[in-house]
Design a protein around this nucleic acid. Structure first.
Lengths: 348, 348
DNA sequence: AGCCGGATATATAACGTTGCAAAACCGGCC
DNA sequence: GGCCGGTTTTGCAACGTTATATATCCGGCT
């Protein structure tokens, strides 16, 4: 069976507590004793039982990360960033995905899915303010992403409005006059709201009409949803000269439809995505995209959760991570320098 | 503070064990009693403490899943499958990524990264047989992926040789005579070995030479690696009429290079990938790919781990998940039916 | 009425760890 | 030699749960 403190103590001929002291680097242990105990630990291959430690101390060393979907490479890359950041603090990440469904998000936020965690990082899609309000759970919660809540939780995100404006400004700066938006969320009002707002604001600022006929709502945020939305817009007979998509997969789905219909990107229609996923750099037409600093988001999220751990409750804060616009062929055409920042104003 | 069994017992005026019995759906509890206790549970908002339960039962309800990298959509999708399969059994998944580095894989396999787990599902890249041999750890281990080990652990994978042969057969069946392989692993011998073997075998079977000059080794398995490998092949002056890539991102990276050089896919060079990630269905040229049954792999992995949980040690087994070849434009050209199985012989 | 046996409820002892308080030790000082 | 103060080690209780064994209940049977 597994070896416990008791076994080590017996082997070394000392008390359990002394072994515990050695394991925990307690200050007042003579070097001789430390060595003797350590030897027994090594011989027996002792490893602390985390469940017992947790029961005693009330900490698990685990934080949960709940994301809408891992299939979206943005979230996968974000997950990697969180895992790495957590590892720096000797924390382990329990990953969950909600499918962006309110029901699942609710379960997660109330701690039903994972009940062994010290803290929770959640990227909500459908969750409403009220859903979070009566959250009896007392594990620290940090929110990620575009949704804004008027609640006392930390929130980490880029400045979505500014990022969306930078994307649209990039398009108008290239002379585009009719910019469609793909990916407003169907049914629910909130999500994508900020990016739609940025789109609207920037068009107004440029003296262009923000035409609702150019906003396509979707059910999801995958390639197929982007393709369907693009198709829908084209079938109304409209021919925008630019498309700004809620995220890269949708932009790529839209580009596929344009390609099928013989419309050239960017000559006929320029396309900008959001998230800067790797995939966008290797298509036949590489994709201009807003690039959030995922690494920073992951790091900030972990730090925020851990800061609230000791039961301390620092003032809830809203943190803005950096972003920048990366211009590629889908707006600049063949020969565009990959990875060049396209717009000075994009950084925040 | 948190409410425990004791509090509920006091509130309901019964013993702790009775409450425990209700919580655990113990058979012999009168409906009246059950209701009474349940009411107290609801009133007080009792929720079992998993650490205590774990300490007592020796189970955590957590399994770890260690993958090379989440950025690769195949692994992200696989992770989603595992999480879902685990949820069916009331298990939670702790996700780790190793970067495909031996050192990290070693740490994971020996349980240093996560010590609260009941079982481990590991997809190794660099780990050698000997690394796993002296694994003192006694948590059940299930291996995933292409590497084969002669060790008493369950191993879940598709038939990589057969799958690779099906891919190559598809190409030769279309009249291609010079099929390059992209993605043999540089430096280490093992990984990709099976797919290379399938490539070699099928070419021989077709009476074609398996020319080592057409095998490109790479350091990683991302888009950029595929692009670099493709570039290298072309720069030797060779003009294969088909490319079989180790995975979809590499195939897509290769296609980007072909596109840049003005080579048409599939007219000049046909391309087949591996893993059937969503991304492959939305490029300017959709990608023919070997499609492993990820859902089955996830499910089988979870079931295998859980089967070994009670300390029972069923005979280690090697499980073959299904796969099929999905033909798309990168081999069949414009107008290819998406999602059609291209080759009857592909299923196993 | 007394007894029996199954169904129901309870008391108690673990699981492995750490915090607290007390005990043992030790060198120096009166 | 006894005492003091600090250092080092120890014993014990507690964290919240479940397994085991035991006590209690109750209807039916002799």
């Amino acid at each position: 069976m597994r070896v416990s403190l008791k076994d080590v103590a017996a082997h070394a001929g000392v008390s359990i507590k002394t072994v515990s002291n050695v394991v925990n680097n307690y200050q007042h242990v003579t070097p001789a004793m430390r060595e003797r105990v350590q030897r027994s630990i090594d011989v027996l291959g002792y490893r602390p039982n985390l469940a017992a430690r947790h029961l005693r101390k009330g900490r698990t060393g685990i934080i949960a990360l709940a994301l809408p979907e891992l299939g979206n490479p943005y979230f996968a890359e974000l997950a990697a960033a969180v895992i790495d950041a957590a590892a720096e603090h000797d924390y382990i990440v329990l990953l969950d995905h909600t499918g962006g469904r309110r029901e699942q998000e609710l379960l997660v936020s109330q701690g039903f899915r994972a009940r062994v965690i010290d803290g929770l990082i959640l990227s909500p899609i459908e969750l409403e303010t009220d859903d979070l309000r009566d959250r009896a759970e007392n594990v620290p919660l940090v929110l990620l992403g575009e949704r804004e809540y008027d609640l006392p939780y930390d929130h980490i995100a880029i400045d979505n409005v500014a990022a969306a404006r930078a994307a649209v400004r990039h398009l108008t700066g290239l002379g585009r006059r009719e910019v469609a938006f793909i990916g407003a969320r169907r049914g629910r009002s909130e999500p994508a709201q900020l990016r739609v707002r940025g789109w609207r604001e920037e068009l107004s600022a440029a003296g262009l009409p923000a035409d609702d006929g150019l906003v396509a709502a979707t059910d999801g945020w995958g390639h197929a949803d982007g393709a369907a939305a693009m198709t829908r817009i084209l079938e109304t007979g409209r021919r925008p000269d630019a498309v700004f998509a809620y995220n890269d997969p949708m932009a790529i789905g839209a580009m596929r439809v344009l390609h099928e219909r013989g419309l050239r990107v960017p000559e006929d229609i320029a396309v900008v995505g959001f998230d800067d996923v790797v995939e966008g750099r290797f298509g036949a037409v590489t994709l201009t995209s807003v690039s959030p600093d995922k690494e920073a988001i992951g790091r900030l999220a972990v730090e925020s959760v851990l800061a609230r751990l000791g039961g301390q409750a620092p003032e809830p804060r809203r943190v803005r991570a950096d972003h920048r616009l990366v211009g590629r062929e889908s707006t600049l055409g063949r020969g565009a320098a990959d990875d060049g920042a396209a717009d000075d104003g994009a950084n925040v």
